Computed example of a mutant assay.
Amino acid sequence: ELNNSLTRYLEELELTRERVGLVLEAEDRRLSVRMNRTMYRFGIITGIFLPMSFLTGLLGINVGGIPFSGNPYGFVIACLLMISVALGQWWLFRRLRWV
């Protein structure tokens, strides 16, 4: 009888161990999906702001070297060009179904 009782306890312990393993696997999958979603969003945000920050950094180096600097509306044209780049990126991301 003691042997049967011990066997039952060991079987219950093994079942509990398997259940804990399944719970840990489910939690690991959930965290992995969350991390992938976060990295996806980070990649999209980086893809949007990296070219724009490059353009602003390039234009911030030397204001005299701005395109259309001789034109009285040169600054407005440069701003419109940056806005068009941003809208082009947005359109591309929408077309690729990233956003």
Rank of each mutant, 00 (worst) to 15 (best):
S32T: 09
L96V: 05
T46R: 13
G64M: 03
C79W: 10
W91A: 11
A86I: 01
Y40C: 04
L13E: 09
F75I: 11
T56W: 05
V63K: 07
V99T: 14
P51K: 04
E1A: 14
A26D: 13
F68V: 00
N62T: 01
E18C: 02
D28Q: 12
R8W: 03
N4H: 07
Q89D: 07
Y9E: 12
V20F: 04
M52L: 15
R34N: 10
N4W: 02
V85D: 08
I77K: 05
M35H: 05
L10V: 03
T16I: 02
R34L: 15
Y9H: 08
A78K: 00
V63Q: 07
P67S: 04
R17P: 00
T38H: 06
L24N: 11
S69G: 01
L24M: 08
L13D: 08
P51R: 05
A26W: 00
L10T: 07
L50V: 10
N71F: 02
L6Q: 09
V20Y: 01
F54N: 06
I77T: 06
R30A: 12
R94V: 13
L24Q: 14
C79E: 06
I83K: 03
W91Y: 11
V23P: 00
L50A: 14
I45Q: 10
A86Q: 06
E11L: 07
N3R: 13
Y40S: 10
S69N: 12
